[in-house]
């Protein structure tokens, strides 16, 4: 017994995990360390960093040197973060609203039809994100599809201002990330015993009660995965806010991108990326801690 074990597992565990660790180290830990290091250095006026310690980048989040050079409490960046979080949360909610019924319906179909429907759900994925987002420009602008059709139907007399609104940003984000939400929910629902829905109907639950009391809780793992996968890219999104929101408000993504280009403040850009990462991890941790305790039981 002992011998055969030696033959099967010639490598000690810490070594057999080596390749995975190396990948993590190289692609995750190393870049993160670089970002962390940059965030604590001084900015080079021509872009890049100078090897000197400075915590200025972090101080800047809450305190801004005011117009006269004094440090003062400043909410601008906090506001940008809050706005980005709100927008990402709204996009996640919208995705959930659209994706859950879709996934529920697909999971209830006969198996041979599910494949085709799943394929249809993932079609937006096949196009480049920029192209996908630009499609919404063509739909929402004054001379776009939506307004053309509505006025052709006589519903509206003059074009509705659909573009360059928060709603437009939301539509673009939700559309872009819908498959990220629909697929994990579908995977969760597909695994659950469909007779549980029948059992609920049998026990006097209506359609909605069955959905909320049985289907939603059972798909919770998929919902959580979907929410994470939509929320995080939405948080860093800058294409949709710029293209569909008209770039009228800064989002975290644009803020960070700006620091590495024309603002030439790499330390601040790195710090912003780091604070964003920390915030996301914090939100995830809180979420998992809340849902995890119940889930562990079944």
């Amino acid at each position: 017994m002992t011998e055969s074990r030696f033959i099967n597992f010639a490598l000690p565990p810490w070594l057999s995990a080596g390749p995975a660790m190396a990948v993590l180290l190289f692609f995750l830990a190393a870049p993160l360390c670089i970002v962390a290091a940059y965030s604590l250095m001084e900015a080079d006026p021509h872009g890049g960093v100078r090897a000197a310690f400075s915590s200025e980048a972090y101080v800047r989040f809450l305190f801004e040197r005011d117009w006269d050079g004094n440090l003062a409490l400043d909410g601008s960046y906090a506001a940008i973060f809050a706005r980005s979080f709100l927008l990402a949360a709204a996009a996640t909610a919208l995705c959930l609203l659209a994706a859950f019924p879709a996934a529920y319906c697909i999971a209830g179909q006969p198996p041979e039809r599910r494949g085709l429907l799943l394929l249809l759900i993932t079609i937006p994925f096949w196009a480049n994100l920029l192209v996908r987002t630009y499609c919404w420009v063509l739909i929402l602008r004054d001379s776009g599809l939506a307004n053309t059709w509505l006025s052709a139907l006589g519903v509206i007399a003059s074009p509705l201002p659909l573009m360059y609104t928060d709603g437009a940003i939301l539509a673009g984000l939700a559309y872009s990330y819908l498959p990220f939400m629909a697929l994990p929910i579908y995977a969760a629902l597909e695994k659950t015993d469909w007779r549980l829905m029948e059992a609920a109907r049998d026990l006097y639950a209506g359609w909605w009660q069955t959905l909320f009391r049985i289907a939603v809780p059972l798909a919770r793992g998929g919902i959580a995965a979907g929410c994470i996968m939509v929320f995080i890219p939405s948080l860093g999104a800058f294409i949709a806010p710029d293209l569909l929101g008209g770039g009228r408000k800064l989002m975290i993504g644009s803020l960070i991108q700006l620091q590495f280009s024309s603002s030439r403040n790499w330390p601040f850009g790195s710090a912003a990326a780091f604070v964003l990462l920390a915030a996301v991890l914090l939100v995830l941790w809180l979420w998992l801690r809340r849902g995890g305790a119940q889930k562990a039981q079944w």
């Binding site: 007779r195 029948e198 059992a199 049998d202 026990l203 006097y204 639950a205 059972l218 079944w298």
Partner: peptide, 17 residues
């Protein structure tokens, strides 16, 4: 849900959550 009829399912179909 509107029938005064209840079922005991083959594999019980107890709600796992």
């Amino acid at each position: 849900n509107l029938r005064p009829v209840n079922t005991v399912f083959q594999n019980y179909a107890l709600f796992p959550h």
